[in-house]
């Protein structure tokens, strides 16, 4: 099933559901979709249905039919495609937008409430997944007391490094405090926050205040070296 919305500039002028019968587009009244404009031919184009798919066809127009800004003679339509004919834009979509009946009726009659929230429906859930499944993965790598390389995923807003038994990463040493340093999430960034007697340094320089950690940077706490990673990964 397909649905089209017809715009002139930013104004929605018509919208309807497509069936299996051909929709003819042109300047004269005998067309299914009449687009009044000098640049539109009498029989300009048509939308045809064949084996479950819709096609846009140029019916020998003077000024051509453009699909997503490329001139086409006949082309299969995908959801979200935009057909340009003269100064009209025809959007092809899976379904009527949720708010279409109410808000678009207002748009058409010129009573646009631009500040009003409107809902645009992405019906293809795969698109939504594609949009969402890129997330940053943050982790630390370090060499533990036994010489093994450890990788710690940072999931919490605060990761503690210290001698305390509650610390997420343990460090030892006679004078090491319970918490030597913390790694704190700050929006999209992470910061290394040194604590008293924690002996924290970032990129080989001792630090005394919160310091932003960059992807791939190194730091040490009480002599133990760490490397920090914050990079985009596909989680799915």
């Amino acid at each position: 099933m397909g649905y089209i919305r017809v715009y002139r500039g930013n104004d929605l002028i018509k919208q309807f559901e497509l069936g299996k019968e051909q929709v003819t587009i042109g300047r004269t009244e005998d067309n299914t979709l009449v687009l009044a404009g000098e640049g539109v031919s009498r029989q300009h184009a048509a939308i045809e249905y064949q084996d479950g798919e819709y096609y846009i066809v140029d019916m020998g127009s003077q000024n051509g039919v453009f699909l997503n800004s490329e001139k086409v003679l006949r082309s299969q339509l995908k959801y979200w495609d935009e057909i340009q004919i003269h100064n009209f834009v025809i959007k092809f979509m899976a379904k009527q937008g949720l708010s279409a009946r109410k808000d678009d009726a207002k748009e058409a009659s010129g009573e646009t409430e631009s500040d009003k929230t409107k809902f645009f429906k992405i019906t293809d859930e795969k698109q939504l997944d594609d949009l969402r499944n890129k997330t940053k993965e943050c982790f630390l790598s370090y060499i533990d007391e036994d010489g093994a390389i450890k990788k710690v995923l940072i999931k919490k807003p605060r990761v503690t490094i210290g001698k305390s038994k509650d610390a997420d990463i343990k460090v030892s040493g006679w004078f090491a405090p319970g918490v030597c340093a913390t790694i704190e999430r700050q929006g999209a960034n992470y910061e290394l926050v040194p604590q008293k007697r924690g002996k924290a340094s970032y990129q080989n320089k001792p630090i005394s205040s919160a310091t932003k950690l960059l992807d791939g940077s190194t730091f040490s706490v009480r002599g133990r070296g760490f490397q920090f990673f914050n990079r985009l990964t596909k989680t799915s």
Binding site: F119, I122, D129, P157
Partner: peptide, 25 residues
């Protein structure tokens, strides 16, 4: 060409949604 303030995700429109989550200290 669609209005800037149209939403592509909200509650009550799609069967499956992917809420965006974050945290901070």
């Amino acid at each position: 060409g669609t209005a800037e303030n149209e939403l592509y995700m909200c509650l009550g429109a799609l069967a499956n949604i992917s809420p965006e989550l974050d945290s901070s200290a």
